[in-house]
Amino acid sequence: MEFGPHLILAILEGAVGAAVLALTALGLSLVFGIMRVVNVAHGEFFMLGAIVAWWVATSIAGHPALGFVAAAVVAPLVAGGVAVLGDRLVLKRVHYDPEATIVATIGILYIIQQLALMTYGPEARPVEPPFNSRIALPWFEFGETGFEIYYPWGFGTTTYKLFVIGAAAVILVGFWLFLSRSRIGLVMRATQLDREMATAFGIPVSRVYSLVFGLGAALAALAAVLIVPIQQAHYLMGGDPLLLSFIVVIIGGLGSIRGTIVAAVLIGLSDGIISVFFSPTLAKIIATLLVALVLVFRPQGLFGKKPA
């Protein structure tokens, strides 16, 4: 294939990754921004979303779209519910102490992972996409006959991949509207800015924290529901999204929603492009290097504020 089509394919692959990564990292960023909790178990909520999606999709007969829609509702609810439980039973009891919560969420990570291994098993299992037609993409060239449009062999994508990109964009915009326009969003932002004053104005901070932790997990699970028809559900699949989310959140600026989304697009796209042209390993190396550079030269991240 020529360079042009090859590059566009790589960008499309990257955009799918970026879409899913933006949702996952947003969850991590939200939890850190509002609760100041570094949630090491975040990837496990992603994994939980994927295996619940598999479980729901395979237990509903009929058109795969039915199972998919059900999974998109149930998986975030289950992951969110488990997260709220973890918040009440563990994080609240260590008073959200920054160091204690790191250790506590490592514990939660292993509990979820091992429970998944015990119940779901070690197999990787696919979920059928709700729709998946191939779309051939056109390319052009200036040949002897002049300008010509043609369809290079292997140059195409699927409707489902385009859907993932669109769905993620819609969810991100929706979430931004929720945070900036809704009453609950206002309460969450006030809590983030000054927890003590939020309390002094009647905001039940510990309930807000439970909600935020649940929402963060639900976002990861929703991202997993979107990706699981492309990748497969596996009990160890949480590692990569966790690492990439951390990379994104650090580059974007801890707690900055805008930075998180910009960095997710940046990392997702470059990860896709470098993986296609060179190797996935090189992509990870470059991303990690980028984190190191950001940490050295702009520790507050691209969009974060300098600490006072």
């Binding site: 206002l186 932002r189 003590e196 104005f201």
Partner: peptide, 23 residues
């Protein structure tokens, strides 16, 4: 409170909204 302790990154309208929500 001493030192005002406003929700600094919220707008004036939003700070007032938080006050209204309390009761």
């Amino acid at each position: 409170p001493q030192g005002r302790r406003l929700f600094t990154e919220l707008t004036v309208a939003e700070n007032i909204e938080v006050g209204l929500l309390a009761r």
